[in-house]
Design a protein around this nucleic acid. Structure first.
Lengths: 201, 201
DNA sequence: TTGCCAAGTGGCGGGGGCCTCCGTATCGTA
DNA sequence: TACGATACGGAGGCCCCCGCCACTTGGCAA
């Protein structure tokens, strides 16, 4: 990302990132940095120099995809149906999180230690999601108290919970559907809410 | 658990388990087995002998609590309000999963490699949950297609997604509430479902 | 073009963790 | 008490992460 870098440094950066993408895809969030270095034909120190900490590497690995998700979100802000737009985007996020190993971990863990780093995956996504969510809320299609962070956390959780299972993608979709419509059957909205409030759930 | 064991073996088992509880509570699911052995005053091989694999250890650590959750579930099967009973139990599970470090990981990961081990946390919990869920479904308080596995996965996901955050417990509760009632505002059940179906989410 | 020097590199050693093997100490019993 | 089965634990192998430091290399100025 820095521009005033030596040519070899940039070359190494790119090679490492390329290898890291494959390795993370293959072994998830805890791929071996050492191994990545080896495969990239580079010393392990170099990997750590370019990406201080596993977090940074994951962030870089997923940043492209995250950008594209944000772009998708932006393109959806003009959609005629705010609610459908939101759901479509959540579906896309779920699909990606469930299929791209390590993504969910990256999402869940960033912003924990660092004081809300500006480029953390979660905050970038939240920024992208917010307009979509706001529009849906204004259209009355989503409860007002639902935040972008809530939705991100829910999707992240679904991805984490299904990671590693066979059929992870379809399970994740199914759980997202449940989450969106609520566990209850249709036509119980009133009863449902009253009881929920009563039991503090 | 085996009865025909040497006295020292049983002693060690108990000591290891006691230490493991503390260590898991302190460091989560990836507490160091080596360290547990050291603290228990035991060789690392002994830990591995009693608990082949981290999974087994976590299972043992949480089994008591899981039993108690199952007992709670059983006591709730007679409750007058099936839906409230289910929600209360889900709340209890969420509270515990969110507060007991490592529990969510244990839940998420068991049954993955092993061919559905009989004593895996998740299957024990599912067995406990099933009657409660069935009763709620029969009372029309829960959609028929919701399985115990679904609910467990959702709660597990919520716990995983909130793990490590400050206020994890209250966030987890909040997300559970959202999940139960659905993301949408009240009174939209019909519209909601139609659209969801239309967008395949 | 040449030479200089900081930016960049990678190997090495320390600290840990997980796992297996195997000689040995201990328990329960005859 | 003596013996055999059972359980123990240390050592060694392998991998990983991390920080240090002497060395190379790329880019700029003369």
């Amino acid at each position: 990302m820095p521009d005033r870098q030596r040519a070899d440094a940039r070359r190494n950066y790119a090679r490492i990132l390329a290898v890291a993408e494959q390795e993370v895809a293959a072994h998830g969030a805890d791929a071996s940095l050492e191994r990545i270095a080896r495969l990239a034909g580079v010393g392990s120190a170099t990997v750590r120099r370019h990406f201080p900490g596993r977090r940074a590497l994951l962030q870089a690995v997923f940043s492209e995809r995250i950008e594209s998700l944000c772009a998708h979100a932006e393109s959806l802000t003009e959609a005629p149906e705010p609610r459908a737009a939101l759901l479509e985007w959540l579906g896309a996020l779920t699909d990606y999180s469930a299929s791209a190993r390590g993504m969910a971990e990256a999402l869940a863990q960033d912003g924990l230690d660092d004081p809300s780093h500006e480029s953390a995956c979660a905050v970038v996504l939240a920024r992208g999601l917010e307009p979509l969510l706001r529009r849906a809320a204004e259209a009355g299609a989503v409860a007002r108290d639902v935040t972008a962070g809530d939705l991100l956390a829910l999707v992240t959780g679904i991805a984490l919970a299904t990671e590693g299972r066979p059929e992870a993608a379809v399970e994740a979709r199914r759980l997202l559907e449940l989450t969106v419509r609520g566990v209850s059957p249709e036509g119980l909205a009133g009863k449902r809410t009253r009881e929920a409030a009563a039991t503090r759930v």
